[in-house]
Computed example of a mutant assay.
Amino acid sequence: MKTLKEGDKVPQFTSKDQDGKEIKLSDYKGKKLIVFFYPRANTPGCTAEACNLRDNYKELQAEGYHLLGVSEDSQKKQASFRDKYEFPFPLLADEDHSVINAFGVWGPKKFMGREYDGIHRTTFIVSGEGTVERVIDKVNTKDHAAQIL
């Protein structure tokens, strides 16, 4: 699997958010988009990352950014994650991995000596034309907005 890099065109995708609403890449045509992938809703690192983006949402919006969070969690899990922390942006429930595969963020990982396949925590800054402007693969979960801004 090849991860998208700067200059790559993002393949069209369609997925459902936490409420079952269909979201497509084309919905963001002409808008700057932050797509952040996280391994699992309600885990410490993912919560810190999403809450940091929530806490800096106004600054991100002021720079013209729209946000999409993506994991392979179910709609129900994403909805409870959003409701618990009051996220003002959609969380895609990418159970079929269509978005994960489009961006190429699934692959082998290691945690506490165990090897397994999973989502690599990665953030993509996408231009209004659908091109990757920046890739952040060393995400600072506690201060992620600063890495973007």
Results as ranks from 00 to 15, higher is better:
1 M>K: 11
5 K>S: 15
6 E>T: 14
9 K>D: 06
10 V>F: 07
17 D>R: 04
18 Q>H: 15
22 E>W: 09
22 E>K: 15
22 E>P: 06
23 I>K: 09
26 S>T: 14
28 Y>S: 08
28 Y>N: 06
29 K>R: 15
30 G>I: 10
30 G>K: 10
31 K>A: 09
33 L>V: 05
35 V>R: 01
38 Y>I: 04
40 R>P: 03
41 A>E: 06
42 N>K: 14
43 T>A: 10
46 C>K: 03
46 C>Q: 07
48 A>W: 02
48 A>I: 07
49 E>C: 02
50 A>M: 13
50 A>V: 04
51 C>S: 03
54 R>H: 05
54 R>I: 04
55 D>V: 03
56 N>P: 05
59 E>R: 07
59 E>A: 13
61 Q>D: 06
62 A>M: 07
64 G>K: 05
70 V>R: 01
72 E>P: 06
73 D>K: 05
75 Q>V: 08
78 Q>T: 10
78 Q>M: 08
79 A>G: 05
81 F>C: 02
82 R>C: 11
85 Y>Q: 10
86 E>R: 12
86 E>K: 15
87 F>Q: 00
89 F>I: 08
91 L>P: 01
94 D>Q: 07
96 D>C: 12
100 I>K: 06
102 A>I: 12
103 F>G: 11
104 G>M: 09
104 G>N: 08
104 G>F: 05
104 G>A: 13
105 V>K: 09
107 G>Y: 11
107 G>Q: 09
108 P>R: 15
109 K>Q: 11
111 F>A: 12
115 E>R: 14
117 D>F: 12
119 I>Q: 05
119 I>E: 03
121 R>V: 01
124 F>W: 02
124 F>E: 00
124 F>S: 00
126 V>S: 01
128 G>W: 02
130 G>K: 07
131 T>R: 10
133 E>A: 04
136 I>K: 03
137 D>V: 03
137 D>T: 12
139 V>Q: 06
139 V>L: 09
139 V>G: 04
142 K>R: 15
145 A>K: 14
145 A>C: 15
147 Q>K: 13
147 Q>L: 11
147 Q>Y: 13
